[in-house]
Design a protein around this nucleic acid. Structure first.
Length: 750
DNA sequence: AGGCCATGTCATGTA
DNA sequence: GCTACATGACATGGC
């Protein structure tokens, strides 16, 4: 199934690339943005938890293992990445089986412990638990099932003794008595040996059961990863794919070459090969992009190929050979020296060149060749020829007017066009250097950074925060569980409910801990809390104490001491295992637990830590505790709370870092997008310039003086007036204008 | 052996 | 003043 998904994903990727190559833009971004957050949450879990309430709620809702304050999803969160592979290999919900195994311990005192013979009731619970485990539902459902299961555990704990049908009435009575003794005296934790042993047998089954779910789950994860890759590839592709689209659109607007290309190219070449830095940089950018466009170009129409296979030696025309074919050239009809027709032609530039003064028929001053003197009246406005003025404007005209001539009208676009366009020119000169171009390319690649986008989609952020913020009860889960357990004096059921609420694990570590501790444990912390419950006599369930039926009841002794003091065990193997377990548990026990045990604290550290103040004081008042005990209890409470606070703090800190990282990635994406847009703007600007240039050439070339001869480009230039009129002015004046206008941008820069 | 990391603990500040 | 919580700093243990 995993391979199938991978197959489909790769197929989708290839299909998307193909679509992008043929010009169809597949906007995977949005799709991924909407799709990935949940996947990411599946993988990493909701991330942000800046308040305690947040992750407490997450703990409650995410995996359902979070009733205990220490079983915050914090651990899941912290270790999600590290444990992802392990989690995939292990099912998330093995606890039911674990608990069932723990119940099997009941049979141990009789020496008839066998995991293959669970009681019917247990079997039922086990099966239901397994159903929950293998259920294909999402995390919410899982949490529900697990919560329900914890309730089941409570029920189990309440009815467990009767369930063990193999026990005789005397046994049950004995158990009952010993149970009460355990409650009074405390119980060791080696009681879980059998649960451990039993669990080892069931682990394999759990693994098998979980394998299916893991397949699907990890399949989704892999799919998410594949989507990331897809995004990378897609964004890397989509962007280049836009260029063919642009080019094609441009090409559509350009009829087939109806004019001698040679002339056009010659006319353009001075400009295009000029030292205009923007174009150089653009050229470099185009080089970069052309590499990326290679495939797309191959797929593109032959028109584009023709377009891009412009005469060599003319770099810009190679890339920007659109201008010669600009329809404006054909539409212009200036057989008289009037520019009336220009208005329509220039209108083609709109809306992008709205600010470009359009020589409307009404405002356009007639440029009758014989009436060149009238130019002076409107002289002084924007210069037209500068940027585009081709030295060989007319092949028939003065070729001597060549490139060495200054461009008196060079400021046309900067002045006549939008300021932002000039700013873009500025940006071209200043910001769009080759280095940046390479960076831009990288960013476009990393715009595969959209993979980052996908992985850190805003929705995921919001969802995580939303989920976390929705949990206002903070440690209510823990406190509620503990309080409920404390409120009920029936230690067996209550403790069991605690335990059941504690140790649900979706991590592989669970397995180890379960193997080690037999019943519970999500991560060391959870296990420790569970141990807190175990070590406390009042919290011991009937499950553990049965372990000591027929043994001594020095529950407050260290497990190792217990083992040494134990009566001859049924078997050496059993003893060895028990010692192992005891040592492990002893090592896993926190210092406070040891202290509490040493001081014979009559309740669990869990209660000590998590009970509300009032209940905590009540609890203390119920016992006659020495000053040392009280002091220890207060220390335990303080340390325990601080421990949780430290965990919360660290989680918040990590979340902050992750969010900042995500913000940085978002900003990088935005930057890449803006740069991309900038490139597009520059491209359109270039096209407009080329159109203007073509128009200029067309108009200028059709102008005739009173003698019917064309004007020399070296002596005359067209210039836009502020009122939209187009003037034919002498070159000298145009040069002055150009110089004057060149100063303005420089001043503006300062 | 030393660095890194996770975790626990203490001291302190804040609400 | 007490309590809970947050957080920096340090200690400790495991890898």
């Amino acid at each position: 199934m995993l391979s199938l998904k991978k197959y489909l994903t790769e197929g989708l990727l290839q299909f998307t690339i193909l679509l992008s190559l043929i010009g169809v833009r597949v906007d995977v971004d949005t799709y991924l943005t909407s799709q990935l957050p949940p996947l990411r949450e599946i993988i990493l879990g909701p991330s942000s938890a800046y308040t305690q309430t947040q992750f407490h709620n997450l703990r409650n809702t995410l995996d359902g293992y979070g009733v205990h304050p220490k079983s915050i999803d914090l651990d899941n969160y912290f270790t999600a990445r590290r444990l992802l592979s392990q989690v995939r290999a292990l099912d998330r919900f093995q606890v039911p089986t674990t608990e069932v195994n723990a119940w099997l311990v009941h049979r141990d005192p009789e020496g008839s412990v066998s995991g293959s013979q669970p009681s019917s009731g247990l079997t039922l619970e086990s099966s239901s638990g397994l159903q929950d485990v293998t259920g294909p539902d999402n995390g919410v459902r899982e949490s529900e099932t697990e919560q329900g299961f914890s309730e089941d555990l409570e029920d189990l704990g309440a009815v467990a003794p009767p369930v063990s049908g193999d026990l005789t009435k005397e046994d049950i009575d004995l158990i009952d008595i010993l149970w009460r003794q355990d409650i009074d005296l405390g119980a060791g934790r080696e009681i879980f040996d059998y649960s451990h042993r039993q669990k080892e047998q069931d682990v394999d089954k759990d693994l098998q059961d979980g394998a299916e779910q893991d397949d699907t789950w990890s399949g989704e994860g892999a799919e998410a990863l594949a989507r990331n890759l897809l995004v990378d590839g897609e964004t890397g592709e989509s962007f280049p794919a836009q260029f063919p689209a642009d080019i094609s659109s441009i090409t559509e607007a350009v009829p087939s070459e109806s004019e001698p290309p040679g002339l056009q190219n010659n006319l353009l070449s001075p400009l295009l090969t000029g030292t205009d830095s923007p174009f150089d940089l653009e050229q470099q950018w185009q080089d970069l992009m052309s590499i990326m466009e290679m495939q797309a170009m191959e797929v593109n129409t032959s028109t584009n190929e023709i377009l891009y296979s412009a005469p060599p030696g003319d770099p810009l025309s190679t890339n920007y050979s659109l201008a010669p074919n600009t329809p404006i050239n054909q539409n212009v009809s200036l057989h008289q020296a009037s520019l009336g027709g220009c208005s329509q032609d220039f209108s083609l530039f709109s809306p992008e060149v709205e600010s470009l003064p359009v020589a409307s028929g009404s405002t356009l001053l007639p440029l009758v060749p014989s009436n060149s003197t009238s130019l002076n009246s409107t002289f002084g406005s924007t210069n037209l020829a500068g940027l585009f003025f081709p030295p060989q404007l007319n092949g028939t005209a003065n070729d001597t007017a060549g490139p060495e001539l200054p461009d008196p009208l060079g400021g046309l676009l900067d002045e006549a066009m939008l300021d932002e366009i000039s700013l873009m020119d500025l940006a071209i000169e200043e910001g769009f250097n080759p280095v940046q171009a390479s960076q831009l390319e990288e960013e476009f690649d990393s715009d595969s950074g959209l993979s980052l986008d996908s992985s850190h989609s805003p929705s995921s952020l919001s969802s995580s925060e939303g989920s976390s913020s929705s949990s206002s009860s903070s440690s209510s889960s823990s406190s509620s569980s503990s309080s409920s357990s404390s409120s009920s004096s029936s230690s067996a059921s209550s403790s069991f409910s605690e335990e059941g609420a504690v140790g649900y694990s979706s991590d592989s570590e669970t397995l180890d801990l379960e193997e080690a501790e037999g019943a519970v444990g999500y991560q060391p912390e959870y296990s420790k809390f569970c141990r807190m419950s175990y070590q406390d006599p009042s919290q011991l369930s009937c499950l553990p104490y049965l372990e000591h039926v027929g043994h001594n009841h020095t529950y407050n002794m260290a497990p190792s001491a217990l083992d040494s003091a134990d009566l001859p065990p049924p078997s050496a193997l059993k003893k060895g295992s028990k010692e192992k377990q005891a040592d492990f548990l002893d090592k896993q026990m926190s210092r406070d637990e040891h202290r509490a045990r040493a001081m014979k604290i009559p309740f669990t550290n869990d209660k000590i830590i998590n009970l509300p103040v009032e209940e905590f004081n009540e609890l203390l008042s119920k016992y006659q505790l020495s000053e040392a005990q009280l002091s220890l209890i207060r220390d335990i409470r303080r340390r325990g709370k601080n421990k949780m606070a430290a965990q919360n703090c660290r989680k918040r800190k990590l979340d902050t870092i992750l969010n900042l990282e995500r913000d940085v990635e978002d900003l990088q994406r935005d930057k890449a997008r803006l740069l991309r847009e900038k490139v597009e703007f520059l491209r359109s600007l270039r096209q407009m310039k080329q159109k203007v240039q073509s128009l200029y050439q067309e108009v200028f070339g059709r102008l005739r003086d009173e003698n019917g001869r064309p004007y020399s480009p070296s002596q005359y230039a067209l210039q836009y007036a502020g009122d939209g009129s187009v003037l034919l002015i002498p070159r000298t004046l145009a040069d002055q204008q150009a110089r004057r206008q060149e100063r303005k941008p420089k001043d503006r820069r300062k």
